[in-house]
């Protein structure tokens, strides 16, 4: 009789240890995701601060390209005002594409390309764009990681008991960075 009790106690202790381990693992994963999200935020702020400088630096030389500026400024305002994740992802995507339009236009002005200040600002913005993309890539990877942690059996029992909620991906577009056909333009596919 006593042996049975001991076995039962041992079994319960084992379950508790396992639950504790899974719980801690999930908390760690969740914090990683949160941390990655705050990184995206930092980089987005950096971009919002840089855009007005670049626009001011090139505006004088590019009077005919008003629409490009307006697009960038409007996209920036929209992105800063966005609150929901999906809304924000969409606004950021349009800001990125309008900035790419601006870079493209700048390329056409040799005088601007030889201007130290403009080149500096452009480099900073390109770098920020990359940092945002990388931060987003990291965030999505971590969300995928966390979601797997939530959904595998039997960890999902702990996850649902303690109400761990899944995070949304930043956008589907970020995942496509892994295979971007534009990047390989000019190459023939192997298959």
């Amino acid at each position: 009789m006593i042996a049975v009790v001991w076995i039962l106690v041992g079994f319960i202790a084992l379950i508790l240890t396992w639950a504790l381990y899974i719980y801690n693992k999930l908390v760690t994963l969740r914090n990683d995701v949160k941390n990655a999200w705050s990184q995206i935020d930092v980089q987005l702020k950096r971009r919002y601060d840089l855009i007005p400088n670049l626009v001011a630096a090139v505006r004088g030389a590019m009077e005919h390209e008003k629409t490009v500026f307006e697009k960038v400024v409007a996209a920036r305002t929209r992105a800063m005002a966005a609150s929901r994740m999906q809304e924000m992802a969409a606004a950021e995507a349009s800001l990125t594409s309008s900035l790419q339009g601006l870079f493209f236009v700048i390329e056409g002005y040799p005088a601007l390309r030889s201007n130290e200040n403009v080149m500096h600002l452009q480099e900073e913005l390109v770098s920020t764009e990359n940092r945002i993309a990388f931060a987003r890539q990291l965030y999505n990877d971590l969300v995928a990681n966390y979601r797997t942690g939530l959904e595998v059996f039997p960890d999902m029992l702990i996850a649902s008991a303690f109400k761990f909620l899944p995070f949304e991906y930043f956008s589907a577009e970020a995942l496509l960075r892994a295979w971007n056909p534009d990047k390989f333009a000019g190459y023939e596919r192997r298959n």
Binding site: G60, A61, M62, E63, Y109, P110, A111, L112, S114, N115, E116, V118
Partner: peptide, 11 residues
């Protein structure tokens, strides 16, 4: 040749 806008940005 430079346009006016380009000329004034020459360093």
């Amino acid at each position: 040749p430079f346009s006016m806008a380009e000329l004034v940005t020459l360093p």
